[in-house]
Design a protein around this nucleic acid. Structure first.
Lengths: 335, 335
DNA sequence: TTACTTTCAGAAAACCTTTTCTGGATGTGC
DNA sequence: GCACATCCAGAAAAGGTTTTCTGAAAGTAA
């Protein structure tokens, strides 16, 4: 049998209202009675039913975070950032994992809605249009993370993927590379990959280099898929002099494949990654990559979501987080 | 203004009870009226308030998962496993991240309690005694994962860390190693590390080898800490011929440190890891390690938690999940 | 037709809090 | 001693849903 506020009231010989007032630190209760209630509270280890409280207050103080998966190393830091500012403002954050599955995605988004979450943060890699429509239709505060959605009607925070990719590829060009391939994310699935591809395109074009379709391969984000894509590239003709990868994991898989067949990095092929996960400095050669702060991503998202919840004015509708190139050992300078 | 079941009832010209019955597929409503309600439901996109429902049903169908962090690669697979069976049985799973912080740990555990979660799964690495007492005191179904708690009163599922470590270290001994160091997790913090250390001790003792305190170093679970511990070991005297590490991440960090100072693995020092994360086959030499199925861990936990929730008889109180040695290139055979 | 059962929808209670409203007791100013 | 304000605690309403209870209408058997 679960203990309720009624039980506490009975045991302390006061009304339920009084108990509630003590729990919520209302000053309008005498110190002797307050102490009596406090004692019972302590003795019973009573925790108020948040469900009932949310119902009457019509406010859950809950922020839902919807992620596709967590293997992706950057998400841990991001959630950490969200947690940090959310807790500061008195919100709790709970996470749901969609497994990258459209049905799950909708299910958990709706769960957050039904749980009366105050707001929702959606990690946008892999997000489907169906979820989009739902977000736009429902009036619950929501922020997208990790994907550049300048064109859309939902506020978002992201790395400026286009610029970052542009800078990375331009660096490769400056090092003398002319035949630069790209291992991008799957076309429809991850929009960050799309934007990184745009940056790649723009950099080549700006340098009057051709963008050749056979030099651009799709790959899922995993190490294994990176290796598979690299194999395809290898088998399809002469090796490019450099490869720009949509994520570090793809790059690591690709480099590993080359190592196994005896191709030397960076002597024969140079590599550029994206994300700066911890393994970039473990593998040999150390991977050059684009670094950004995932926790900052989370903090900006949480901060603005809370503004949205409170009905405050937003300073902007889309924010980006700074990035920088980390040049390490995976790039050869061509004369 | 939020739309409620009352609004739907009014619009369909029926009572709220009838709407509720339609939503919950009660057969006791005529087909013409049902259709009328269904139409309004469709038109309004109404979602019942889960908060109110939980309050009256006294059943949330929610499983809370409390994790220290998610950078640890195995947790993703574990949650995947939990999700899979939970959804099968009609439960939703939400995750909270404690950041390995005692206060957060209690906070989120209590949040799950207050949210009337049907059950809770706690990933036990890093768990504090305060949380323990709380779990034992509250009568809400709970299962511990990832740590061997045979001695405790809370049901748990885990890898048999003692045996697995015993087998790994015994393998090293069979390969001719006599001076085997261990990089274990921090003493109090991670109990899996404790049990893995026990296995290490037992294997040495069984082979009549001494367990020398200066050969056992504590290390947090990260790559960076693994490197730091290895540096300490290196500076404290002659190198051991083999190192058994409590996790792959520690091993990877340690091996990387040796690579940087020019010590050859496995020629000069052999390595054994634990977890079989994806990077074990990427680094050179490929790391020998202990493999187990994290998703199985999650599935067993979820399955038994649901039994507990339903009040069914448990087949056991502690379960273990199978493991196997993955022998790769990080171990030299000594003559 | 009568008496009875069956079908189906509405009324109302219940779930557990918070909060407004009410009113009794006490204190204050004249 | 009276009018009034102040303080504090209890009563009750509210929040949105589910479910039991009730009862009207329709159907069935004699």
């Amino acid at each position: 049998m679960k203990i309720t506020i009624k039980d506490v009231a009975r045991m302390a010989n006061v009304s339920v209202s009084t108990v509630s007032r003590v729990i919520n630190n209302s000053p309008t209760v005498g110190s002797d009675i307050r102490q009596r209630v406090l004692d019972v509270l302590e003795a019973t280890q009573f925790r108020p039913n948040a469900i009932a409280r949310t119902l009457v207050k019509n406010n859950s103080s809950l922020i839902g975070v919807l992620l596709p998966e967590i293997k992706n190393n950057v998400l841990d830091d991001m959630v950490e950032g969200i947690n940090q500012v959310a807790r500061l403002y008195g919100y709790d954050v709970v996470i749901a994992l969609s497994g990258g599955n459209a049905e799950s995605e909708l299910h958990y988004y709706n769960l957050f809605r039904e749980m009366q979450a105050s707001g929702i943060i959606v990690s946008a890699s892999g997000i489907r249009d169906s979820l989009f429509e739902l977000i736009e239709a429902s009036q619950i505060p929501c922020i997208l993370v990790g994907r550049d959605f300048r064109e859309k009607s939902i506020p978002s925070v992201h790395v400026d993927n286009v610029s970052a990719a542009y800078e990375a590829v331009t660096y490769l060009i400056q090092q003398g590379h002319r035949d630069i391939a790209m291992l991008r994310g799957a076309q429809g699935d991850i929009s960050a990959g799309n934007h990184r591809f745009q940056g790649y395109e723009q950099a080549l074009t700006a340098a009057h280099l051709p963008v050749r379709a056979e030099r651009v391969l799709e790959s899922a984000l995993s190490v294994e898929e990176g290796a598979a894509s690299m194999r395809k590239l290898y088998e399809s003709g002469p090796l490019p002099s450099a490869v720009f990868c949509a994520t570090d994991r793809i790059a690591i898989g690709a480099m590993n494949f080359l190592a196994e067949i005896g191709v030397k990095v960076p002597e024969q092929v140079s590599f550029f990654g994206f994300d700066d996960i911890d393994m970039t400095v473990i593998i040999r050669p150390k991977l050059s990559t684009v670094r950004y702060s995932a926790s900052e991503l989370g903090m900006v998202a949480a901060r603005n979501l809370i503004k949205l919840i409170r009905g405050e004015e937003l300073s902007a509708f889309h924010w980006s987080v700074s990035h920088q190139l980390k040049i390490r050992d995976s790039i050869a300078r061509l004369k």
